[in-house]
Design a protein around this nucleic acid. Structure first.
Length: 470
RNA sequence: GGCCCCUUAGUCUAGCGGUCAGGACGUCGGCCUCUCACGUCGAAGACAUGGGUUCAAUUCCCGUAGGGGUCACCA
């Protein structure tokens, strides 16, 4: 088989969403696996809904995920342009050929007439189908017209889908559809086919909301006399209620996950495993994905997006980050939250503690807050741990710490054990009040680490403040 | 509604005629322990349903039910 030429062809009507990202990912993986070409094409023929901002947002999302394209906007290529609105002559030429060969015809029906017929059909609870009004009319180029493709009335078109197997569509369910508007802008099926042909795409992988378009497209390839590419239709990604994933289900844009503090390789990992598998393996590096990906392991069933699993995957990758990567990744989020963090020893020590406890950069920010901002006392924690009984304990720890010139792990351990031991208390009886005093809450890294990260002076200050409250 | 596709635990999945139906997220419990987390040990939890085919069906075929998709001068 010749090297794959695959494409991702979003229409720029919004940001890059989770489903689109997975489609792009699978295409990209296949191209990279086999040394093929990944083409990015912008399908902006819906002029009312397409925007440049959306184009930018989509490119932005793809770049963040690391899905680089070999041909397309910004990088060019031998099959450009890569925006459909810049390819109008190409569609026109192909439509003219179909017209000349009698495989398509000019249709003069107005939108209003058609809408009327549609409404009538609906009133009678009939399935609307274009009646073929203009199918045999002589062509009059001077009249405003669209171009309609002649679909066979009988028979069926069958194609072999790489993930779903043979799919058959009876022609009776099809109709002579419009392929070119009066202003020369193509409709989806025609534009996609002409582009895929001229861009030499040999495998079309897309969401399975396109299965019903495929027969029409196959018919178009055949009418145009071009080879039909292979098809792979990926099952939809659904929300927890099994409805198509939408804003109702929470964040659906890729960049939202970036802002929420997810790692791109984690998003890629999760998305890859949603609908594809490789034995029992859950965690994949990008390189492993490229090496293992195959259409045969892509499942045919729709998948439900599970935020809990994705956050787990993210945690796995977060924990595996090098110290440098972790600091570099966390810093922007810390700063964005208004915390005066620097890439210094304090941050490194903190992150070392947090990487096991926080699953996203957002959680890192939440857990780092009390190390960079004044203590926000949790009322419940205060009530339970900062009562009168805590006073002598806090005082003892405070005095012990004040007596240490350079606190270290061993010294602190001795101090806490001494304070607890002298009163025959469990260590926790001392550690918890101190924890609340230092962090404001009941959950944190180990108490010695907390003291060390805060530093002697700040710890003493917080202890004093807490003692004053008891 | 027509047509197309799909159906293993709450979720993602392994399975490709004979398995105690495996793994992962989540959930619950034990251990570890200064809290949380990590780690670790363990538990509950699935082949939608009815017919075939076969010595044997989760696996192959048909029906039913359920879910999804699609029926535009949107993509």
């Amino acid at each position: 088989m010749s090297p794959p030429r695959v494409r991702f062809a979003p229409s720029p009507t919004g940001y890059l969403h989770i489903g689109g990202a997975r489609t792009a990912l699978f295409n990209w993986l296949w191209a990279r696996r086999h040394g093929g070409t990944f083409v990015l094409r912008i399908e902006d023929t819906d002029r009312d809904r397409s925007t440049q901002e959306a184009v930018d947002a989509i490119l932005d999302g793809l770049r963040w995920l690391g899905l680089d394209w070999d041909e397309g906007p910004g990088v060019g290529g031998a099959h450009g342009p890569y925006r459909q609105t810049e390819r109008l002559e190409i569609y026109r030429a192909h439509a003219d050929r179909l017209l000349q060969e009698g495989k398509a015809y000019a249709c003069y029906c107005t939108r209003e007439e058609l809408d009327g017929l549609r409404k009538a059909a609906e009133a009678e609870k009939r399935q609307f189908r274009y009646p073929g009004t203009c199918r045999h009319l002589p062509h009059d180029p001077s009249r405003r017209h669209v171009v309609r493709f002649k679909v066979p009335e009988t028979g069926a078109t069958v194609f072999e889908d790489l993930v779903k197997g043979a799919i058959s569509t009876p022609h009776a369910t099809l109709q002579d559809e419009v392929i070119l508007r009066a202003d020369g802008v193509p409709l989806y099926n025609f534009g996609a086919v002409v582009d895929d042909v001229t861009m030499e795409i040999n495998l079309v992988a897309r969401g399975d909301d396109h299965v019903n378009n495929t027969a029409r497209q196959v018919l178009l390839y055949e009418a145009l006399g071009y080879p039909v590419p292979a098809f792979a239709h990926l099952p939809m990604i659904l929300g927890a209620d099994k409805a198509r994933l939408s804003k109702r289900h929470g964040a659906t844009s890729v960049t939202a996950y970036r802002d929420l503090g997810y790692l791109p390789q984690a998003v890629v990992n999760y998305l890859a495993r949603l609908g594809w598998s490789h034995g029992d393996q859950e965690l994949f590096t990008i390189a492993e994905l490229v090496q293992a990906f195959d259409w045969r392991q892509v499942g045919a069933t729709a998948g439900i997006f599970n935020p809990e699993k994705m956050i787990w995957v993210n945690h796995q990758w977060l924990r595996r980050l090098s110290d440098d990567e972790l600091a570099r990744g966390a810093l922007p989020h810390l700063r964005a939250a208004g915390l005066p963090a620097e890439d210094d020893a304090k941050l490194r020590a903190l992150l070392q503690q947090l990487r096991e406890r926080a699953r996203t950069f957002a959680e890192i920010v939440a857990q780092a807050r009390c190390f960079y901002a004044p203590v926000e006392l949790d009322p419940k924690a205060r009530e339970k741990f900062l009562g009168p009984a805590a006073r002598p304990l806090l005082q003892a720890v405070r005095d012990g710490l004040a007596a240490m010139e350079a606190p270290d792990l061993a010294g602190l351990e001795r101090l806490f054990h001494a304070v607890a031991g002298a009163r025959e208390l469990a260590l926790g009886k001392v550690a918890q009040p101190v924890r609340v005093a230092l962090t404001g809450g009941t959950a944190s890294p180990g108490i010695y680490e907390v003291v060390l990260i805060l530093g002697r002076a700040e710890s003493l200050a917080r202890l004093d403040a807490a003692i004053a409250l008891t």
